[in-house]
Computed example of a mutant assay.
Amino acid sequence: MSAAPLRIGVIVEGPDDARTVPGLVDRVLLDAVPALAGKLDEARTFRGIDASAPFVTWSAVDEEVRRHPVPRRHGHFGGRPAIEDARTAVLALRCFVAQEPQPAAVLMVRDSDGKPQERRRGLEQAREDFPWPFQVLLGVAHPMRECWVLAGFIPQTKEETASLADLRRELGFDPSARSDELDASSKTAKRSPKRVLGILLRGDGEREARCWTATDLGHLRGRGKDNGLAAFLGEVEARLAPLFSDRPPR
């Protein structure tokens, strides 16, 4: 009889992130553990704090805490004040601790909104706050999730090639190669990742998904060095993949 699927908790910004992040996780798992090919759905499942949901958003953590009472986190972290999302992240992790059964790992992925170091350090404070009974993986998309998608964009048609060339002339750089230089402060700004992605993919969700499901992992890591994607993929490979290597599905 095969082992039960490993439960992976997911905390993200919203539904779009909840498509991209698990998809990237699966790519790394399949690359690192070839025995998972064709068996992913039997090997892992994604869930939120509410076990019936596949993810929880950062904005919903407080509501979930009211439904699943856990102690509030006060005071300093390692002698330093809390940074950014540290306290919210700890509360979310405590909710996952209270689950039965507990997850094997929890993914905490956040947009940087122009503050990549602060957001990262806040999540690290939460991870280091307690010897959690599961792996905790961190991701900071700089400046936002759309930049991780852009890192996987390779023109497939004449129209896409022309659109990218137009954007390179307008912006003065290739937004797929240097997505970290885009600006998340306004959706309509010239350097908005949402605007750039909209011009390139014209709202085609299936084409967008191919940017992270079909593009070579080496390409994603190379283009994701400065936007947080490479670091997140590294966390999945180092912290999550070994859990599956130790118990490949039968």
Rank of each mutant, 00 (worst) to 15 (best):
L167A: 05
E235N: 05
P69Y: 11
M144N: 09
V25T: 08
C95F: 11
L123P: 04
L201F: 09
S59R: 14
L6P: 14
P54H: 12
P71L: 07
P133C: 09
D246M: 12
K187N: 09
P81C: 10
G205K: 15
D204H: 03
D16F: 09
P131W: 04
W132V: 06
V106N: 04
P34R: 02
Q102W: 08
W212F: 13
A189H: 09
R247G: 00
R191G: 06
G79R: 02
A241H: 00
L197Y: 08
G172F: 08
S245A: 11
V97Y: 02
G14L: 01
A92Q: 14
G23C: 10
A82L: 07
A165E: 15
R223A: 09
R87E: 14
D216P: 05
G172A: 10
F55V: 03
W132H: 07
A60Q: 09
A86H: 08
C95W: 10
F96D: 15
C147H: 07
R66M: 05
D174T: 12
M108Y: 05
R202E: 11
E170T: 08
R127G: 00
E84R: 04
E237H: 00
S245T: 02
D41V: 04
G9M: 01
V61L: 13
T213W: 00
F77A: 07
H219Y: 02
P71T: 11
S179E: 12
D111A: 14
G38Y: 01
A214D: 11
L107K: 07
T88K: 14
Q135W: 06
T45S: 13
R239C: 09
A141C: 06
G23Y: 09
L24Q: 14
P71Y: 15
N227D: 13
A238L: 11
A141I: 08
R221Y: 09
D204N: 15
H68W: 04
S186W: 15
D246V: 07
L36C: 01
L217A: 01
T57V: 06
I49M: 01
M108Q: 15
L243V: 03
A82K: 11
C147S: 15
D129E: 06
A98I: 15
Q117C: 08
E181C: 14
V149P: 07
R47K: 05
D180G: 05
F153R: 03
E235W: 01
V56F: 10
C95R: 01
V109C: 15
E160C: 00
A92H: 08
P248H: 01
A32Q: 13
V21E: 05
G14A: 04
E160Q: 11
T215I: 10
V56H: 10
R207G: 02
R195P: 06
D180S: 05
V109Q: 14
A104D: 10
A141W: 05
G14S: 03
T20H: 13
P143N: 12
R44N: 00
V90T: 03
A53M: 11
P69D: 12
D183S: 15
F77M: 05
P69H: 15
E63G: 14
E100F: 10
T20R: 04
P249Q: 03
D16L: 03
R7C: 07
I8K: 06
T188R: 12
E235H: 06
E160N: 00
E170M: 15
H142G: 02
Q99F: 13
V28C: 03
A3T: 08
A43R: 00
A92Y: 12
V196K: 03
A241E: 00
